[in-house]
């Protein structure tokens, strides 16, 4: 081993030089025994290293440092506590809001739907609760085209927009009315082809789940509007249910395979 390699290894030794006892440094230790220059060099390095280490560790500690560290820690703890508290508060508020929303939804869903067996009852509801809701049917509605356009205008007056693409069979419509049954708007129409006249007919909601002669009701739905049409023999019916959801409709009409 030459001096250069030995001194590189010496550089890697600890201050005490104990590492020279390691087996892997044995060649360097042997070289030191044989080379007085390297040995002297090694001792000088040890002395230098010892002094550097001593000076390096000699750093005066500022007065009151410990107290300032404690203060900073205390503040950090407080900030963390406040943040945690704020987080919990937000979470609790969200939880309460969620529970409230669910409760409201359940209250809304649990409103009993007044289902009565007779059309007389429905007509009575129309007359009692919304006496002005009945719309007189013009006498000149003699063809399907006129009926359709008239009904469309009436729907518009009620703020019920029906998309042209909804393909409502308006040829069957002759009348429009609105009532409020447990908070839901219902419009029901009847057109009698055989008589060539139109009558307003408010049907009980329970009749919505029947297809009459077997024809399935057709359902169009927007965000808060359900329009149902069906026929019974020569009679066409349209029901407009405002603020109804598909779920509510499906609960009401579990057998309407035509719901889409």
């Amino acid at each position: 081993m030459n001096c250069m390699i030995a001194q590189r290894i010496i550089e890697a030794c600890r201050l005490s030089g104990d590492d020279l006892n390691l087996p892997e440094l044995a060649p360097a230790a042997a070289h030191l025994e044989e080379c007085p220059d390297c040995l002297s060099h090694f001792r000088q390095r040890q002395a230098t290293d010892a002094r550097i280490a001593a000076v390096m560790q000699d750093v005066p500690i500022p007065d009151g440092l410990r107290g300032r560290v404690e203060t900073r820690l205390y503040r950090a703890r407080r900030v963390r506590r406040v943040r945690r508290l704020a987080g919990w508060s937000v979470a609790a508020a969200l939880l309460v809001a969620g529970v409230l929303a669910l409760w409201r939804q359940s209250q809304h869903a649990s409103v009993p739907i007044a289902v009565q067996p007779s059309s007389e009852w429905a007509i009575q509801v129309v007359q009692e609760k919304m006496p002005d809701a009945e719309v007189p049917v013009p006498a000149n509605l003699t063809d399907a085209q006129a009926v359709a356009s008239w009904c469309t205008r009436q729907l518009a007056k009620l703020g019920l927009k029906v998309s042209p693409s909804a393909r409502l069979p308006l040829s069957g419509l002759v009348g429009i009315a609105r009532t409020s049954v447990e908070g839901h708007a219902v419009a029901i129409f009847q057109y009698d082809d055989s008589r060539g006249t139109a009558d307003l007919l408010a049907l009980p909601l329970s009749q919505f789940d029947v297809g009459g002669d077997g024809s399935s009701p057709q359902v169009w739905q927007t965000r808060n509007l359900v329009v149902v049409t069906w026929t019974e023999g020569e009679t066409a019916y349209v029901a407009v249910l405002k603020n109804w959801s598909r779920r509510e409709w499906q609960q009401l009409v579990p057998r309407t395979g035509g719901v889409s």
Binding site: V59, I61, L65, R66, V69, R72
Partner: peptide
Amino acid sequence: YRSLYRYAYRLSGSVADAEDLTQEAFCTAH
């Protein structure tokens, strides 16, 4: 805290930085 401050001082070469580093280190440790 003493050895940490000394180490910080030797690293940063500044009393203010060393003190700040020491405090930050203990906050993180906490």
